[in-house]
Simulated scan of single mutants.
Amino acid sequence: MPFYVHAQDKPGVADQLMEFVEEHWSYMDRFDDRLILRGPTLSDDGEEHTGSVHVVDLADRAAAERFATEEPFWRAGLYQEFTADPAVVLLRREPAADAPYTLVTARWPPRPRTPGDAEQWLPGAEPDGRLSFVAVLVDDDQESTTGVAAAVRALPDEARSLVQPLADRLAGGPTPLTAQRWQRGGRN
């Protein structure tokens, strides 16, 4: 099952991250065939690393938590927290090279899920193909939605406006969004 794993950097660790980047990439190489999305979140100007996002196919929550806590940046104490949520991937496209991207997320209290309900709203949410990735976050039983995560080829304000209608429909009403710069990660 895919899990959305987001780790947030502790303040002031940018220089230390470089010390462990090869270990981080080597660790991620072990999951290469199961990584659906990967890459760092960035500061508003796109210059500083603020965290890491991985959507990875794993057996269960325990495996997702192991994935997060055995990651070299976490083991070195460079992350302040992580979340690991089961996800239903609705859209997955290769991000365009050399384009700004934003990770847009929303969280809401568990809301009963009907399989296929999110898929019916996705086509209207992407009029121009800027959505590269969309996943609905669900509870462990996949019976309730708990949020959404999207990678959008746009800067934060514009990205937020593209995801807002979809998030509001999934949440059953207006829901606040978080938007932060993101870039495709990995060795290539």
Rank of each mutant, 00 (worst) to 15 (best):
Met1Ala: 11
His6Pro: 09
Ala7Glu: 05
Lys10Trp: 14
Pro11Trp: 10
Pro11Val: 00
Pro11Asp: 04
Gln16Val: 12
Met18Asn: 14
Phe20Trp: 07
Glu22Cys: 12
His24Val: 02
His24Cys: 01
Tyr27Gln: 07
Met28Glu: 08
Arg30Glu: 08
Asp32Thr: 14
Asp32Ser: 13
Leu35Asn: 09
Pro40Thr: 03
Leu42Cys: 03
Asp45Tyr: 05
Asp45Cys: 04
Gly46Tyr: 01
Gly46Phe: 00
Glu47Tyr: 10
Ser52Ala: 11
Val53Tyr: 05
His54Thr: 14
His54Val: 12
Val55Tyr: 00
Asp60His: 09
Arg61Ser: 05
Arg61Asp: 08
Ala62Cys: 01
Glu70Tyr: 12
Glu70Pro: 03
Trp74Ile: 01
Gly77Val: 00
Leu78Val: 02
Val88Asp: 12
Leu91Trp: 11
Arg92Ser: 04
Arg92Gln: 04
Arg93Met: 12
Ala96Ser: 11
Ala97Trp: 13
Asp98Glu: 12
Pro100Met: 06
Tyr101Glu: 07
Leu103Asn: 15
Leu103Gly: 13
Leu103Arg: 14
Val104Gly: 02
Ala106Asp: 05
Pro109Thr: 08
Pro109Met: 03
Pro110Val: 02
Arg111Met: 00
Arg111Ala: 01
Thr114Gln: 06
Asp117Leu: 15
Ala118Lys: 07
Leu122His: 04
Leu122Arg: 02
Leu122Gly: 01
Pro123Ile: 01
Glu126His: 15
Glu126Asn: 15
Pro127Ala: 12
Asp128Cys: 07
Gly129Asp: 02
Gly129Lys: 03
Arg130Ala: 04
Val134Phe: 08
Ala135Thr: 05
Asp140Pro: 09
Asp141Thr: 11
Gln142Ile: 10
Ser144Asp: 10
Thr146Gly: 02
Val148Arg: 03
Ala151Leu: 07
Val152Arg: 13
Ala154Asp: 00
Pro156Arg: 07
Pro156Tyr: 03
Pro156His: 03
Leu162Ser: 13
Leu166Lys: 00
Leu166His: 01
Ala167Ile: 04
Leu170Thr: 09
Ala171Pro: 10
Pro174Asn: 15
Pro176His: 08
Thr178Ser: 01
Ala179Pro: 03
Gln180Trp: 00
Gly185Asp: 01
Gly185Thr: 09
Arg187Cys: 12
Arg187Trp: 07
